[in-house]
């Protein structure tokens, strides 16, 4: 029994953080957190004396914590509201999602209302939107995924009113599911979709409100189904905090790896 105690103590001790380090606390959006987690790991390995703690709790918590000084940086996965202008904003990356169909599907265009009606189960056949007489397969994301959140917000609806046939986890699984079902409709991050189209996957991205869904249009802000991923601080960042913000904005590879769009 003693040796087990010693063994578990050893594990505990080896896992506990070193105490000498300077700490940066980030709180807020769970969309931004996984991305920043990756970046922070790299940053910590290059700056041994800085430790970065990340806690989630939604964009609103990010704003409140940064304002009160509870956290050094708040993470916010939306545009700032007018009454939040007291905070300093640093955009880290952009997120955009595209509506995708199989390339065998002759439908070229869908209006915002048509897409919403399809996802709500009011339109169930492609023939109702100018396609062939085939049943529509609605591919939706699992609850908690940020893409679902953005999708719901854009269409001003909620999860329980969407009637889906397949529920998927990550973007790759979505693309596999849609390429296996010629009469399906779904949505994934634009970065992932463009990557797969370039590799010959039989999918296509629909234009939305007349704007072509592309990484460029997400970056320029033209594409409507997109949002910025922001850091907010209450005062002008200095020292390691400023270093980390600059570091995070320039990690293009990690940002792309998480299917977000880097700025410039």
């Amino acid at each position: 029994m003693n040796s087990i105690l010693v063994f578990s103590l050893c594990i505990l001790v080896s896992w506990s953080p070193s105490f000498a380090a300077e700490k940066i606390l980030l709180t807020g959006s769970s969309t931004v957190a996984p991305l920043i987690d990756e970046i922070a790991k790299q940053f910590e390995s290059q700056n041994k004396n800085i430790r970065i703690d990340i806690q989630t709790g939604g964009s609103t918590r990010g704003i409140i914590d940064a304002r009160r000084g509870v956290s050094q940086i708040g993470m916010v996965s939306r545009k700032l509201k007018v009454n939040e202008a007291d905070l300093l904003k640093f955009t880290i990356a952009l997120d955009g999602i595209g509506i995708i169909l199989h390339t065998d599907n002759p439908v070229r265009e869908l209006s915002k209302q048509q897409i919403l009606a399809i996802f709500k189960g009011e339109i169930t056949k492609w023939s109702e939107v100018g396609g062939p007489d085939q049943r529509i397969i609605v591919v939706n994301k699992a609850q908690g995924r940020s893409t679902l959140e953005l999708f719901l917000k854009y269409f001003k609806t909620k999860s329980s009113s969407i009637k889906s046939h397949v529920i998927i986890g990550d973007n790759e699984q979505g693309i596999k599911t849609i390429s296996a079902h010629p009469w399906s409709i779904g949505y994934v991050s634009i970065g992932t979709a463009e990557f797969n189209i370039a590799n010959g996957t039989p999918i296509k991205i629909l234009d939305l409100e007349g704007v072509k869904a592309s990484v460029e249009n997400v970056r320029s802000g033209l594409y409507p189904l997109s949002r910025p991923l922001n850091f907010v601080t209450s005062k002008q960042p200095i020292g390691p905090i400023k270093e980390f913000i600059d570091y995070a904005r320039n990690r293009k590879e990690i940002i792309k790896g998480q299917y977000f769009v880097p700025i410039n």
């Binding site: 699992a142 908690g144 995924r145 940020s146 046939h165 397949v166 529920i167």
Partner: peptide
Amino acid sequence: GNIVKFPTGIFSPVRALTSNIALEMAYA
């Protein structure tokens, strides 16, 4: 297919207990 529904036939999409964890844990 991962739809939370009682299967009505062999062609019904279903979600298993384990799938539920895999699908939603990352962001929960």
